[in-house]
């Protein structure tokens, strides 16, 4: 088979014999959501962001107003989480927005896409590595501070924490969690983005070889 001899045969297929698509069908397509992996990731991230904003705001209001502000410390903890979450999601969305550009030349686009996805995955990984022990630590603090305030209101917050009987178990579990957190996150991030990363790396290799 000689490629040059098949050029005319090939080109004929792009002529009127090609399937027609009506304007109505095209208008319908434009109303649909993209099924591109990046668009789907972005939709999930936006959903997570809204769930976080609504649930955390509700918790802040609940803790802030319960029993005349007795649990205000908990409300502050949740507010810190909310701000950290807002930073986390805004960074992710900004990287995803950059990844959605596809008007560049194929090679440029692939390299850009790959680098942005690597950045996204690194960010996801490191944020997760720190977040898991941090959430564990703060949730525990919230529980013992709240309990201490109710049962021993005469004690300070620090006294309630240091006299807590489960403190040693908490510290040991926290250390274990901190140590295994990189592995859990590594596995999870790879499960989510590993195949897309491999696919992009393979495409960049194809362009370069």
């Amino acid at each position: 088979m000689e490629l040059d001899n098949l050029k005319s045969l090939w080109q004929e297929q792009g002529q009127p014999a090609q399937k027609t698509v009506s304007a109505t069908d095209l208008f319908e397509i434009l109303k649909k959501n993209s099924k591109h992996p990046i668009a789907m990731i972005k939709r999930n991230v936006l959903l997570e962001l809204w769930v976080m904003i609504i649930s955390y705001t509700a918790m802040i209001v609940y803790f802030g107003t319960k029993e005349q502000g007795l649990y205000i410390n908990n409300a502050i903890f949740v507010a810190v989480f909310l701000f950290a979450g807002l930073f986390y999601y805004s960074r992710k969305i900004s990287l995803l927005n950059k990844m959605q550009n596809n008007t560049d030349k194929i090679k440029v686009n692939l390299i850009k896409h790959l680098n942005l996805l690597k950045k996204y995955v690194r960010f996801y990984y490191w944020f997760g590595v720190f977040l898991l022990p941090l959430v564990y630590f703060i949730t525990y603090m919230m529980v013992i501070v709240a309990r201490g305030q109710k049962e021993f209101p005469e004690k300070t917050m620090w006294e309630n924490i240091t006299t807590e009987s489960s403190l040693v178990v908490f510290i040991i579990t926290g250390v274990i969690l901190t140590l295994i957190s990189p592995f859990i996150n590594g596995w999870y991030v790879k499960k989510l983005y590993g195949s897309h990363l491999n696919k992009l790396e393979n495409l960049v290799k194809q362009v370069d070889e």
Partner: peptide, 15 residues
Amino acid sequence: TWMYRIAINTAITSI
């Protein structure tokens, strides 16, 4: 040209 770019980019980056 612009159309080829987007069409190919979309085809190869979709899993």
